[in-house]
Nucleic acid binder design. Structure first.
Length: 303
DNA sequence: GCATGTCAAGTTGTG
DNA sequence: CACAACTTGACATGC
């Protein structure tokens, strides 16, 4: 069985996440600032629950939560702690309630922190910010019961081997609670499944296999081989495997293969995945969001 | 009201 | 060297 996943947002369903900017917050006195942040965080916590209700109706059983649930949480000037927010207690309650709903209905929850999380960077402040950002995701994951925080290895800096060594070293300094939630995903320019596999085994990290990235950034492995490498990393941890899929906006002959199309071209769904026996989660990375998930589910359902 | 430029952050590849 | 690409949209501002 395939557990299809939605990434962050809806296009048609009336769930709108809120955000704000550092500049607008700085213009406010501290009390007003925290009141504003509190109302946004509470609204977004409610939005998580609302998202899950919609997903349950649509039979979508995995949800990648947006990193922006608590806007500017780790910002150096206007960052904050949950306890500073007037609605802190309610915010926690609502997130825990959402988490219980997900658990009860077997909806898998994850995060995918964005490109600023780079544990392989040679720049100390970049690594420190990354750790901070991961801890923020860790707090949200604890509250909601999210199982996974999926990241990329980062930049190459002219020598992948050294970059991987820095990653290994910086990973070791993260709190245990964060480490055990992390996974590593192959990216579209630097690190392939072959690059990541050994490190994943060594650090007991599961590997998320993004087949679109693999097609953009191949390593000589077939999709079948890369899928099997990925499966192995989850199996040894006794966890459900995780894949990503997307289609290039302008087709595979187009110029920018990396940008995501509105929907998944069924041709891009690997034939080998149809043969897999066990369950796996498949995040659908497509601009048409829930519509793209529904369409792919319908297509594969028909066989 | 509504249009539109802007938003904290990293790295790489393209034009 | 600026800009797009990486989940992007929603906010803030100015007409």
């Amino acid at each position: 069985m395939i557990r299809f996943g939605l990434c962050c947002l809806f296009v048609n369903e009336p769930v709108k996440f809120r955000t704000t900017t550092a500049a607008s917050l700085k213009a406010l006195p501290v009390r007003k600032r925290l009141e504003k942040l509190s109302s946004i965080c509470l609204a977004n916590a409610v939005n998580v629950k609302a998202s899950l209700l919609v997903l349950e109706r649509l039979k979508i059983k995995s949800f990648r939560m947006s990193s922006g649930l608590f806007p500017v949480f780790t910002h150096p000037d206007v960052g904050y702690a949950i306890n500073e927010l007037p609605d802190a207690v309610r915010i926690r309650d609502v997130l825990r309630d959402a988490g219980r709903f997900a658990s009860k209905n077997d909806i898998r929850l994850s995060f995918h922190p964005d490109q600023f999380v780079v544990l392989s960077s040679p720049r100390e402040e970049v690594v420190a910010n990354s750790a901070r950002e991961l801890c923020y995701h860790g707090v949200l994951a604890e509250l909601t019961g999210a199982e996974l925080i999926n990241i990329h290895l980062g930049g190459r800096y002219g020598c992948k081997k050294d970059a991987i060594e820095r990653f290994r070293n910086n990973f070791g300094k993260l709190p245990e609670s964060v480490r055990k939630k992390l996974s590593l995903e192959n990216d579209d320019v630097s690190y392939t499944p072959s690059d990541l596999h050994g490190l994943c085994l060594e650090l007991s990290l599961p590997m998320v296999y993004d087949v679109h990235h693999h097609r953009c950034n191949p390593d000589g492995l077939s999709i079948k081989e890369a899928t099997e490498l990925c499966l192995g990393t989850w199996k040894r941890l006794d966890r459900e495997p995780y894949f990503h899929i997307s289609s290039p906006k302008e087709g595979w002959s187009g110029r920018n293969k990396k940008s995501h199309a509105d929907y998944i071209d069924p041709e891009d769904f690997p034939g080998y995945w149809r043969k897999l026996k066990g369950n796996f989660t498949l995040d659908v990375e497509a601009k048409a969001k829930e519509l793209a998930v529904e369409k792919l589910m319908a297509h594969l359902g028909k066989g």
